[in-house]
Amino acid sequence: MDPLSITAAVVGITAPTVHCIRLLLEDIQKIVDAPETLKSLRNDLLSIDQALASLQAVSEAQWQSLGDAVVVQSKTVTTSCKESCDRFRAALARWTRHSDDRKLSLRDRAMVGFLKQGYVKSMSEQLQHCKITLTSVVCTATLHSSLQQKRATEEMMVTISKQEADIADSITTTDKQLAEVNTKLGALCIAKQQEDETEADRTSAISQVAVEQTVLGESRKLLQELLSGIHTAAANARKDNAHVVNNFGGQNEGIQIGASYGTISGITFGKK
């Protein structure tokens, strides 16, 4: 994929997603007496906003090093995040339709603060997972860039190992969340409609969890692709750092060094 095409493609979906997130954030902030369930969601929105800003800062060369699959999957995760925020904004407007002057009526407060806790929690978890996934993309891009610019040091090898472990942990967590979401989606589909719940609310709740399921699945693919890239980078770095054996003369005397990151002193060159 052409570098300019990569940048345009990523910015093309990231910018509208950031805009949508900020609109949702404004909607929540306008509710002066918002319940805690909505207040906690504001922090998640701010976090994903920062993650997307970091994603926009990834350079063309870094995207190239990550590969086309990572680019495509990053776009998919970002697009799903936007769609979920759009859906949540529409749902929030329905939940607060009995309120005036942005102050929740008792009926709407009960709807948002109690009846819709599961919906809000699903949204919160999705935002958190998107943030972790996109942050992993940025960290991996930075790591690839560092490896291309200079020889891997011992400190960098530690960083590579840590990034491998972090992504592997994220994949494990994603698998657990996928199992939970699959169970939740099945329960929602067979559950009876709650009191004061419209058909639109029910459909929206099912769609929200379905999107969460999709995002988790796409995030897992993206994380797996990143882990594969880290494995390759680590293998190349370890190969480059392999010790070199040197023989000195017929007596095989002297010092032999493959890779040394410390100071060497007290050496005399010449015959004994």
Rank of each mutant, 00 (worst) to 15 (best):
L185W: 13
G113L: 03
A168L: 13
T135V: 00
S207T: 14
S145Y: 01
C139L: 09
E60H: 10
V158L: 10
V77K: 07
M111V: 04
S170D: 07
A205N: 14
T76I: 02
E180T: 15
S124Y: 09
A141R: 08
M123A: 02
M157V: 02
D166M: 11
R151W: 02
R109T: 02
Q117E: 12
L115S: 14
R109V: 03
T133M: 10
T140V: 06
D166Y: 02
R109E: 08
T135I: 02
R94I: 02
H144N: 01
L104W: 01
L147M: 15
D166V: 07
Q149F: 05
V71D: 10
Q193P: 06
E125R: 06
I206N: 15
A200D: 15
A200F: 11
Y119M: 06
A91L: 13
A191F: 07
E199H: 13
S84E: 11
S204M: 13
R89M: 00
Q126A: 07
G113I: 04
K192Y: 12
E197G: 10
I160N: 03
D201C: 14
A152S: 09
L178T: 09
K176G: 01
C139R: 06
L134C: 09
Q73D: 13
R89H: 01
S124R: 09
A165S: 10
I171W: 09
S146R: 09
T140Y: 00
K192N: 12
V138S: 06
A141C: 05
L92T: 01
H144W: 03
A205C: 15
Q128G: 14
M123R: 03
K192M: 13
V77G: 11
T183R: 10
V120L: 00
E83Y: 03
V137T: 02
K75N: 04
C189L: 15
V120C: 00
S99A: 02
T133A: 11
T140D: 03
D201W: 15
A91E: 09
T79L: 12
L66V: 05
S136C: 14
I206V: 15
E154R: 06
F114N: 08
E164C: 12
D169M: 11
T76G: 04
C81W: 01
G67L: 13
N182R: 14
S80K: 02
D175G: 03
L178I: 10
L185N: 15
K103Q: 04
S80W: 07
I167H: 05
E154S: 06
L143V: 11
G186K: 15
T159S: 14
A91F: 10
L92F: 05
L106H: 13
V138M: 08
S124G: 11
V70C: 05
Q126M: 10
T153M: 05
A165I: 06
K184T: 15
E195I: 12
E83R: 04
T172H: 13
C139S: 11
